[in-house]
Design a protein around this nucleic acid. Structure first.
Length: 268
DNA sequence: AAGACCCCCAACCGCCGCATC
DNA sequence: TGATGCGGCGGTTGGGGGTCT
């Protein structure tokens, strides 16, 4: 017997989300938190697959998301992490507060890849392109390696991952012929903060408990403020703050919103 | 002005790992 | 121990918008 599809294909809507659907999903999660995604569509009154709801929330609606292009620092961080982890976008995203794996993956494919090629660096191996032919010859004989896995375990420093890799993408980037990347890799304070043992996943932190107040930093990258994150939602012409059914917010959340509103008025 | 082309990114698809029974 | 359910991940796609001719 085959596996059941993740959702009942009949009557399930696909394609771009409407403002109305977003509202429903936001309302539901603000009220109930993130629980069983499969049940979310039904409980929230959405004709969507649970998977689709999860994706929409994590990639677009989550209030702790940073929006806009990746900064130079973030880009360099992505490059470095990719050289160590390969295409494990969720792991990479976990090191970039406010960024999603989808966003990083997209940015990699549309911007960074081209940039690296232009710089003469192979985006897969992070080796200089003219070395690729030689590297390919030698690669077959390289079978053992722990680089990325040991990184995931946070059991060693980055420089300790440089010896062997099971795949080209997991090679240490120390040999990359990019001055800026080398400079970045040699930023000990930044890197040490990235590879700290027992460091909790950044992205996985509960957004509704630790609402960033703005100006905070993580790994040297500034976190978005609650205000900034709400702004884009509130700017949507189709629905304003009340349309989200914010009456379902708890006191803390409402206080936060009120404080921000007051601050807005003060600044204005 | 309009058609062709390109770029970007939100969303989908299929697979995998883990938990549970 | 295998079947099943679920969440999560990474690859891919398609459509909208921008640019070029």
């Amino acid at each position: 017997m085959g596996r059941q599809p993740c959702c009942d294909k009949l009557g399930v809507k696909k394609g771009p989300w409407t403002a109305e659907e977003d509202k429903k999903l936001i309302n539901f999660i603000l009220t109930n938190g993130q629980c069983c995604w499969r049940a979310v569509p039904k409980l929230a009154g959405l004709r969507r697959c649970g998977k689709s709801c999860r994706l929409r929330w994590t990639n677009y609606l989550r209030p702790d998301l940073k929006r806009g292009l990746l900064s130079e620092a973030e880009e360099q961080l992505v490059i470095d992490l990719h050289s160590r982890l390969g295409n494990r976008w969720s792991k990479i995203a976990g090191r970039l507060p406010g960024r999603t794996d989808n966003e990083i993956k997209n940015h990699w494919n549309t911007h960074i890849k081209k940039k690296l090629i232009k710089m003469g660096i192979d985006p897969v191996t992070h080796e200089p392109l003219n070395k690729e032919a030689k590297a390919a010859e030698n690669h077959i004989s390289e079978t053992d390696g722990v680089g990325a896995d040991s990184l995931e375990d946070n059991s060693s420093t980055p420089t300790e991952n440089c010896d062997n890799s099971s795949t080209p993408t997991e090679n240490c980037s120390s040999s990359v012929g990019s001055n800026s990347l080398d400079k970045f890799c040699n930023d000990e304070s930044l890197l040490s903060s990235l590879w700290m043992k027992d460091e909790p996943p950044l992205i996985d932190a509960s957004w509704d408990i630790n609402i960033p107040t703005g100006g905070e930093t993580c790994n040297g990258i500034s976190l978005p403020s609650w205000e900034e994150n709400c702004a884009w939602l509130l700017d949507c012409q189709d629905f304003g703050i009340n349309d989200f059914g914010l009456d379902c917010l708890n006191d803390i959340e409402l206080n936060t919103m009120n404080t921000l509103e007051m601050a807005d008025k003060t600044v204005a």
